[in-house]
Design a protein around this nucleic acid. Sequence first.
DNA 1: GTATGAGGGTTATCCGGTTCAGAGAGGGAG
DNA 2: CTCCCTCTCTGAACCGGATAACCCTCATAC
Lengths: 337, 337
Amino acid sequence: MKRPTIADIAGRAGVSKVAVSYALNGQPGVSDATRARIVAIAEEIGWRPNSAARALNGARANCVGLALCRPARILGVEPFFMELISGIEGVLANRSYALLLQVVTSHEQESEVYRRWWGESRIDGVFLVDLHYSDSRVVELERLGMPVVVIGHPTESGSLSAVWSDDGEAVRETVGYLVALGHRRVARVAGLPELVHTTVRDQAFEQACEGVAEHVTVHTDYTGEEGARATRRLLSSPNRPTAIIYDNDIMAVAGMSVAQEMRVEVPRDLSIVAWDDSPLSQVVRPPLTALTRDIPAYGAHAAQRLLALIAGETVPPYEDRAAVLTPRGSTGPAHSV
Amino acid sequence: MKRPTIADIAGRAGVSKVAVSYALNGQPGVSDATRARIVAIAEEIGWRPNSAARALNGARANCVGLALCRPARILGVEPFFMELISGIEGVLANRSYALLLQVVTSHEQESEVYRRWWGESRIDGVFLVDLHYSDSRVVELERLGMPVVVIGHPTESGSLSAVWSDDGEAVRETVGYLVALGHRRVARVAGLPELVHTTVRDQAFEQACEGVAEHVTVHTDYTGEEGARATRRLLSSPNRPTAIIYDNDIMAVAGMSVAQEMRVEVPRDLSIVAWDDSPLSQVVRPPLTALTRDIPAYGAHAAQRLLALIAGETVPPYEDRAAVLTPRGSTGPAHSV
DNA sequence: GTATGAGGGTTATCCGGTTCAGAGAGGGAG
DNA sequence: CTCCCTCTCTGAACCGGATAACCCTCATAC
């Protein structure tokens, strides 16, 4: 039950391998009649191009890579990555591109994965996510000279193409909204401080609060436990915040539970905003005011740009739409304590 | 900046390509001195075996596939798949195997992806998840003759190897626990009815309740909205259940919110159990009693078996540990209404 | 002195598809 | 009738590595 090759087709059709190759690739050099005959036979015996043989001729691997550097327990809880992948795949599937996925535990390991994939000619390009400052992976990828689309802020992506969204704008919108509601003490429970987008949000937060509200930022590892702990600390402080912005929804939910535990009522005594809207935000009581973003679309844009890059086009940084605030029941006017 | 090949190494070392091939693959036929020299050169110039060239010689592709057939919004919310993938990857990474991922929207499309991957020699085997009854994908994969590990119940996996866990046992344990707490009207908010594991749980649920408690099962699509709707309906019925078992945690959280909305107190008036423990279960108030399972380990077991299958070994069905009940604050003794 | 064999290489082929340089056949122009 | 060109198709080489088969040298055994 060997897989059929173009030689088999050539034998049946009574022509050479070359004619078959031309016919199946839509190249000139065969008559329409012969082409039709060859195509019919190929279809009949279920022929597929051997991707290895094609790749060997310097052709593309028709495959791109994505490495995720987060512990399993966080990856599972963050809907972000799965939604991003779904969006990426929507674009890739149309062009018969495959996605190679790897979960790694360090940047060194991640760079090694890139070197291996690229060295083995397994992929034509990669997506880089969770950008850090002075990111060693950027340097490594520039060195390899492989097509890359960074999903993150272009100031830190070096010479690599970036797809990003203005988190600062979303922060300003949120703070403006909270201040308008009368909040004067606002906290932010942020994610990993080494991530560029965390710092971007941190800075925008500070600037937006400057002069209009007291502000404090606490960093966490995105887990519910740390979100809960941070909330407990914030709500225990002498003049506790009347509003908290969380960097993901699981922490926001955890924070809301802590508030409830401490008899701090949401939204009466505390307003809560979650970054990245997900179904979770809508099923809790009260439903969470969230910063909504079309993540699959974000992934799709990145994929389009990576394919363009692979095709040899030059790809300028692309700024996707910023997250927009979706007010729900977890935010309300501030009450003086 | 061409990638170095064994021919380059051969040139530098002053030997033939074959000697290099032997040396780098640990085969006999070269002296230790020559081997050391060749290995040193290979390392120096950063040589990597071209995966396409290797695959072309009938060697393995060193890659396995996974296709997920669920809409993006559900994939994102279910931590199950990401955790499964993490577990799979732990095993694959050790053996330098890559994972090809694709999100599809129908079984036909999924089968087509398998045909293409296999026909193109891209993969050595696949994982099959979300088994249905009379699953067309099983037939297709048997026809293709490719190594497959089904992550699901072995009665429906045909001749394919299966890795599974006894959901029935977990259901019995849960029902037993609820009955011991005095519950006599128990409901189950189940997932997609066409999935084998849903039916397995449904049947075990009915049997376990038989004679000891009234029972009712409602099917949903795993989303929070449907979980909420089902809960609303259940709690509005004339003799409403005093305990509900949900097929995932997002629905359990949604159900708890609905209960709160309807002034049904958890766990006083209603006990809630969630299938598949996740960090989410622990951050809500009260924390959810959940059926805990080590999903990464589950994935790892499946991966080990797929690799064994690819290596030509025969792999009997493997029964992983059943989910165990982790009681938390969302369950308590039943009160007569 | 010759047969035997192991150690260390080499040459030739193959995997499946692509690409380049031609080779015949047929047609139109001069 | 010849020249030239186009159309259709073929042989051969190539991509990078694996592998079967064979070759040479030197050491050992008889």
